[in-house]
Simulated assay, not measured.
Amino acid sequence: MTTSQPFLDRSDPRLKLTVENRTKNVFVTQPEDRPKEEHVNLIPVVTETPCRLLEAGLNTLQKTLVLQKEAELEEVSRQLSLKQQEFQSRVEGLAQRRSELELKQQQNAERVSKFEKFVAESELKQHQALKKYKDAREQNNIKQKDIERLTNKLIQRRDRQHVLKDRMTKYKIYEDYLVKTINFLPSSYLENDSESLVLPIIRRHETLSITHQELLQRLEKMEDEVEQKQQQLQTMKQEHSIKTLMGNKELSELQNELEGLKDMNKQAEVSLQMEQGQSREKVEEVGSILMAINNLAEHCYLPSYGALEDINVLTMMDMVKEYFLDKADTERRARSLMESGSAVAPLTDKKGRGSMRNMGSKAQIKSPSKVSKKSDSLS
């Protein structure tokens, strides 16, 4: 289906273009300074927000707006100066707080150092007190031992005192008898008679009592010495037992070392015997190899190498090698002659026998080559 397009009438005024002299729209910031022109519509430049325009009005002049902006700028600068003052005061406060904090940190460091010093002093005092306590405990132990020893001595002295008291009571009757006898004697008897028998007895008794006291003191000293010697003997016995244990320990260690050395000697002897057996086998093998080389040299002797007795082993092997190479070259030539057919039948038979012999000799050569390899490895 086809659609019919509308018909356009050229006389229609709507289709004609008409150009008018329109007025220019010019945006100015200072309308008073600019000269007036025709066909120009001056539009002031508005930079404020719609809210400010509604507050101030649309017909406000640009100078008024500038004054308002200056006033606002002054207000902002005043607020900025206030903020700067507040910031400066806060900075000063912070500096003061920092100085106070540093002072507190210094005080805390001093307190910590003092506390550490106090702790060190307290530890030193504790160590000294502990040492004093140990010394005092040792002294107390020594004093306790002395007290026990003196208590035993006191018991012994009391027993001795009881014995002496019993003896005194026993001899009291004799003393009373002597006193009564002296009372019955006249007063001038003791004064005039200087050779009386009583005075020597008394003096003898005094001497014996003094000697008895000295002997008791010597006995006490000897008992103390005996106790010291017993203590020394006990310590010497302990040291001797300790030394005996140490000697037994060292003796057991030395016995273990001796057993280990014996085992090592046995292993060394076994290894030495094995090495000696291997060396014997090697000597026998080398001797057999040298005998084989000498036998081959006698069978493969070449006069160009000189006397056989003056040739060494390597030269003998080179001579044998050259001999067999010569034989192999001869065999190769004979086979080439046989293949070419130029030789006579008897000759070929002889050559065939010679080749068979050479093959037999090659079969016998294999073992000497192995022997030569063994000799190289041994050398």
Rank of each mutant, 00 (worst) to 15 (best):
T2H: 14
L8W: 11
S11N: 08
K16S: 05
K16E: 11
T23I: 03
N25T: 07
V26W: 15
P31H: 09
E32T: 08
K36E: 09
K36M: 06
E37F: 13
H39W: 15
N41I: 02
P44I: 00
V45K: 09
V46A: 06
E48G: 03
E48F: 08
T49K: 12
T49E: 15
C51R: 11
E55Q: 07
G57W: 07
L58F: 14
L58Y: 14
T60R: 10
L65E: 07
L67S: 06
Q68S: 03
A71G: 02
E72V: 00
V76P: 00
R78W: 06
Q84T: 07
E86L: 04
Q88D: 05
Q88W: 03
R90G: 00
E92W: 03
G93K: 13
E100W: 12
K104P: 02
Q106E: 12
A109C: 06
R111D: 02
V112F: 12
K114T: 02
E116K: 13
A120R: 11
E123I: 07
Q126L: 15
H127D: 12
Q128Y: 08
K131W: 11
K131P: 01
K134Q: 15
E138K: 10
N140M: 15
N140A: 15
I147S: 02
E148L: 12
N152G: 11
I155L: 11
R158V: 13
Q161V: 08
L164R: 04
T169I: 06
K170T: 15
K172R: 10
Y174A: 03
E175P: 01
L178D: 01
V179I: 09
T181R: 09
I182K: 06
N183Q: 12
L185G: 01
S188Y: 11
E191L: 15
V198C: 00
L199M: 12
P200G: 00
R203D: 03
E206Y: 12
E206R: 09
E214H: 10
E214S: 08
L215H: 11
L216A: 04
R218E: 07
E220W: 12
E223L: 03
E225P: 00
Q228H: 08
Q231P: 01
L233N: 05
Q234T: 04
K237D: 04
E239W: 06
K249M: 05
E250K: 13
N256S: 12
E259L: 05
L261A: 01
K262E: 14
D263H: 14
E275D: 02
E275A: 07
E281S: 06
E284L: 09
E284Y: 10
E285C: 03
V286A: 05
V286N: 10
G287Q: 13
I289S: 05
N294F: 14
H299E: 12
C300Q: 03
Y301R: 01
S304D: 07
Y305K: 02
A307L: 08
L308M: 07
L308I: 15
M317E: 04
D318T: 05
D318R: 08
M319H: 04
M319I: 00
V320N: 06
K321F: 08
F324L: 03
D326C: 03
T330R: 11
E331I: 14
A334Y: 11
S336D: 10
E339V: 02
E339N: 09
S340W: 07
S342E: 10
V344K: 12
A345K: 09
P346V: 01
K350E: 13
G352S: 08
S355T: 15
K362E: 07
A363W: 10
I365Y: 14
P368H: 04
V371P: 03
S372V: 14
K374M: 07
K374S: 06
S377F: 06
L378R: 07
